[in-house]
Design a protein around this nucleic acid. Structure first.
Lengths: 220, 220, 220, 220
DNA sequence: AATGAATGAGTCTTCATTCAT
DNA sequence: AATGAATGAAGACTCATTCAT
C-alpha cells in the first residue's frame, strides 16, 4: 500500500483529545465552584465530574490553584470581551449615548455567568496566582481612559486618570451589586430606570447634564 | 474561714476572666488572619497565639467559623460606629456639607484596620455564617436613606431607595478601592481632591451642583 | 495541602502518655521496616501498627523521615553503647587482649538487632537527615584512636589516624558482612576462629605478632 | 514494489536502533540516579532524558526496577572488568607484588564512576532484583581465592575460604570508604601511603612480612 | 474551667504502568 | 515500533474537633 504524505499528523488527533480533556476539566471546575463553593472543590471531585482520572487532571494542571486560575482566566476573558466590544461600538458616539451603552454592557457582562462570578468574587481567596479576579477592571481602566481622552472636549474634569478610576470602579460596583445582591433592582420593568440612574450619575459627574429637565423628568 | 465582704463577686471575677480570654481569642484570630491569611489560620495556632489551649478555645467558640464571625462582627461594629457617628454629626447639615463629611468618614472607616479589612474582604469566603462582611453596607443603607428622606427638599431624585442604594454602594466601592488597591489616590496632597471628586459625583447626581463653576473650578 | 517537611521532633514527650505513644511509634516503625522494608513502610501503616491515629503520629513526628531517623538514632545508640562499654573495659588491657575483645564486641553489636541493622544499612537511603547510619563508625573512630594513642608503645604504625581509620573500617565491614551475609562464618564452632582471624589481621597490622608460631598454630 | 538488494537486512538495522535506544535509556537512568537520587528518578523523566517516549521505555524495560538493574549490571561489569584484568596481570606474580597491584586496582575500580557508585551503594534498596550491588564482591571472591590457592606456598593461613572472604571484604570496604567518604586519604601525596598500608595489612595477615623492617620503615 | 493528647476524614499529589492510536 | 494520553492505587500530611483528665 502506498503511503501518502499525511496532512493531518497523528498528533493533531491526540491534541484534539487533550483539548477536550482540558476543557472538560475547566468546565468541571467552574461547575463545582458554583455548586459546592471553593472550599469544597477538591481536585478529586473535579476530576470525577470531568470524567477523567485524577492523574489526567495533574497531567494538565499542576495544582488546584492552576485549575481555578484557568476558570478565572476564561471568565475574565468573556467579561472583557463584552466590555471591549461595547467600547468599540461606541468609540465614536458622544458620551450621552456611549455611557448608557457601557452601563448596559457592564450589566450584560455581569450576567454572563452570575453564579460563577459571585463565587469567584466572594470565595476565591485573592492569593498567589489567584489575585486576578479584578483583572477585568484593570483591563477596562486604560481602555475607558482612552475613550475619555478621545472625548475630552465633551467632558469637564480636571484629572482624567482619577475620573476614569472613579467611573470604572463605580460602574463595576453598581452593576456587580445589582446583579449579585439586588436582583430586584434589575427586574424587567425597573432595569431601564437603573441604567438611566447610573448613566446620569456618570454624565453629571462629567459635567454633561446641563440640559436635563430634572424637575419634571426625575421627581415623581 | 472568715468571709470578707466582697464587692466583686466571684462570678463577676470569672466573667471578667472569660471576657479577657474571649478578647484574646478574637484578637489572635484577627492577627493571624492578617499575618497568615484565612487558609493558614488554624484553630490550633489561634489558641497558641491567644495563649490558651485548644480546648479552651472550643469552650468559648464552637467552631473556627464562629471565631472568624466574631472578628467580622467586631470589625463591622467599628466601621459602623464611624459611619453612624458621622451621620449623626451631619444629620442637620445641608447635603453639600454632609456628603463631604460622609465621604471622609467612609475613608476613615476603611482606614480603621485596612489590612484586616482587606483579608476579610478578599479571603474569607462569603459562606455560611460568614456572609456578613457586607453587613456594614446593609446597616448604612437605611440610615443614609433616612438622611436623604429628611433632606428631600434639597435633592432631586425620583426613587429614594434606588438613590440611596446607588450612593452607598458607590461610596463604599470607591473608598474601599482607594484604601485597598490605590493608596496613591489617597496620598497626602491628593486625598482632598479625591474626597472632592467623590463628593461632587454624589452632589451632582442628587441634582445639587447647579451653581458650581465647572469651567473654572475643575478644568486645568 | 502539601506541606514542607520538618525534621526535628515536634513535641518533647514530657508526659507519660506521650512517652508511651512515641515509643510505640518508633517501635512500630522498626518492626515495619524489618517486615516490609523501607519503601513499603507508610506512615499510615506505622500509625496503625502503633495503635494510634495518623494524626497522633504527626503530632510527634513531622515526617516519615523523622520517624526513621528516630529508629536509626535508637539503634545507633544501642550499638555505640556496646562498643563503648567494651572499649572502656579493655582500656587498660594490652592490645593482644583488647583487640580480641573489641572484635567480639563488634560482633555482639551487630547482633543486637541484625534484621533491623540490615534494613537500615541496605534500604534506607542515605539522604537528608538519614545520612547517619554510619554514625556509629564515626563515633567509634576517635574513641579507638584514643585507645591506640594510649597504647602507642605497643604498636608500630607511622600514621595513627590512618591506622585507626583502617582498623575501624575493617572491623565494621568484616563483622557486618559476617553477621549479615555470611552467617555460616559465625556458626557456633566457627565463630571463635573468625574472631581469631580478624584479631590476627589487626595485631599483625599493628606489628605485634612476632612471637606467633604461625607454622604450627595456623596451618592445618 | 521492487525489492532492492539489501546488504544489511532490516532486522539488523532495527537491532542497531534498539541497541542505541537501550543504551540511551540505561545511560539516562544512570545520569538521573546521580543527579536526582533514586527516589526522584521517575520513569517518565528517564524517558524524557533518553529522548524517547515513556511507551518506548516500556518496550525495552518491563519496569523501573529492570532499568536500575541494568545500570547496576553495567556498573558492576565495569568494576569487575578492572578487577579481573588486574588479577590476570598479576596471576603469576608473588603476593608481595600482586596484592599491592590488586589494592591499586580496587581503588581504580571505585573511581570508575564514584558518584554513581555512591548512589548505587547508598540509595538503591537491596530489594527484589536489586540485591546485586554486592555482586562485584561475590564475583571477586572465587577469583581471588583461586589466586590464593595457586600461591598457597607463599601464604600461611589455615582456612583459605575464610582468608579470601576476609581479604576481599576488607579491601572492598577500605577502598570504598576511602573513595566515597574519605577523599582526603587518597589525596595525591597520600594515596601511595594508603595503598602501602592496606597492602601491608594484607601481607602481614597472610604471614608474609617477616622481613619487613618495621622499626625503620614505618614508625615516624 | 482548662488542658492537650488523640482523632481521622479528607486533601493534594506522584508515578509506575497500560493501551489505543 | 513508537507515542503519549490516561490511569488510579497509594502515599504524605493537615486540621477542625472531641474528650478524658
Amino acid at each position: 500500500m502506498v503511503q501518502r504524505p499525511q496532512k493531518t499528523p497523528r498528533k493533531i488527533a491526540s491534541q484534539k483529545r487533550s483539548r477536550v480533556t482540558v476543557d472538560a476539566l475547566v468546565e468541571a471546575t467552574a461547575r463545582i465552584l458554583v455548586k459546592d463553593g471553593y472550599d469544597r472543590a477538591s481536585t478529586n471531585r473535579i476530576a470525577a465530574v470531568a470524567g477523567v482520572s485524577i492523574g489526567t487532571l495533574y497531567q494538565y494542571f499542576p495544582s488546584k490553584e492552576a485549575l481555578v486560575e484557568a476558570v478565572i482566566e476564561r471568565h475574565t476573558q468573556e467579561l472583557s470581551q463584552v466590555g471591549q466590544t461595547a467600547l468599540l461600538k461606541v468609540a465614536a458616539s458622544p458620551i450621552e449615548i456611549a455611557l448608557r451603552e457601557l452601563v448596559r454592557a457592564a450589566i450584560d457582562a455581569h450576567r454572563v455567568d452570575p453564579k460563577l462570578h459571585r463565587v469567584l468574587a466572594e470565595q476565591v481567596p485573592r492569593t498567589g496566582r489567584l489575585e486576578d479576579i479584578e483583572a477585568v477592571e484593570r483591563n477596562a481602566l486604560p481602555l475607558f481612559r482612552a475613550y475619555l481622552e478621545a472625548h475630552r472636549s465633551e467632558v469637564d474634569v480636571a484629572d482624567l486618570d482619577l475620573a476614569a478610576f472613579i467611573l470604572v470602579t463605580t460602574v463595576e460596583a453598581l452593576t456587580h451589586s445589582a446583579v449579585i445582591t439586588r436582583p430586584d433592582v434589575l427586574a424587567d420593568e425597573k432595569a431601564d430606570a437603573f441604567v438611566e440612574e447610573v448613566t446620569q450619575l456618570m454624565l453629571r459627574y462629567l459635567g454633561r447634564d446641563r440640559g436635563a429637565k430634572r424637575g419634571t423628568a426625575r421627581s415623581k
